[in-house]
């Protein structure tokens, strides 16, 4: 995961700013302002936090195809935005497509900025500051670390099937056939792991330790916190005023 350690925003500021920014975006209805917010506010933040690559992938691989289809559907097929007579205004239909795409970029981008810019070593501390404690802190910690493990285990199981000669070749159909045989041992492993790991956590009091480790003081910059909070409040107010 492309976590950055460049900028440290206090978790509470991070959480509040994200919520305010999302609410602001949900009320946004001006394309120019939304474009401005994306290009002038969000993109520099992505660059500063070294998370531009992930955002770029999101825009190109997810939003761009949706935008093209939206353009075709609302700008040409229907020829009008929702609520208007079909065929009445292709230009407005196209504008609607742009508006939806920009909103997607902003909503997705704000979420990415919130999570992807959390320094890796501050992840659990952040969850703790957001109010997660005890068992739920463990769930959150486990949830973020488990994905690489499960991905790896899935690859290992697939390799193991190759090693035993159970997959005769690498054709797509053969690989699709492996899919259910991959999942069964994965699930059994998951259940057994859950059992063994909780015993381990109990034995070594790791849940307590996780709580203690994550309750260490969080050091962040006052000016950066103020800046982030100011942007999100300003964004919300602008959009509320423009309704």
């Amino acid at each position: 995961m492309p976590y950055s350690t460049h900028i440290s925003v206090h978790p509470k500021v991070r959480g509040i700013s994200t919520i305010l920014a999302i609410i602001g975006t949900l009320f946004a209805n001006d394309i120019i302002i939304m474009l401005f917010a994306w290009l002038v506010l969000l993109i520099p933040l992505f660059t500063l936090t070294s998370t531009m690559r992930s955002h770029g992938r999101f825009v190109i691989k997810i939003v761009a195809p949706i935008f093209i289809i939206l353009l075709v559907v609302w700008g040409w097929l229907v020829g009008a935005p929702p609520g208007l007579q079909p065929g009445s205004s292709s230009v407005d239909g196209a504008r609607f497509a742009i508006f939806i795409s920009l909103r997607l970029i902003l909503l997705g981008g704000i979420f990415q900025l919130c999570f992807l810019s959390i320094p890796y070593d501050k992840l659990i501390n952040t969850f703790r500051q957001w109010g997660l404690k005890g068992n739920w802190l463990v769930v959150a910690a486990g949830a973020f670390t488990i994905w690489p493990e499960l991905k790896l285990r899935g690859e290992q199981i697939l390799d193991a099937r190759y090693a035993r000669g159970l997959t005769p070749d690498r054709k797509l159909f053969s690989r699709i056939q492996q899919f259910p045989f991959l999942l069964r041992p994965l699930l059994t492993w998951a259940i057994r792991s859950a059992n063994d790991r909780t015993q381990l956590w109990d034995q070594r009091r790791l849940i307590l330790k996780l709580g203690r480790r994550s309750s260490q003081k969080y050091h962040s910059s006052f000016f950066i916190n103020a800046y982030v909070l100011l942007i999100s409040i300003t964004w919300l107010i602008i959009n509320l005023l423009f309704i």
Partner: peptide
Amino acid sequence: TSAYVGPEVYNAISGLSPTVEGEIKLNSL
């Protein structure tokens, strides 16, 4: 506290930390 490390060693790793360093630090508190 106690610690059991069995032949299925991957289940003796907590799964609560994404790095080796984090795993050691968590246990070392």
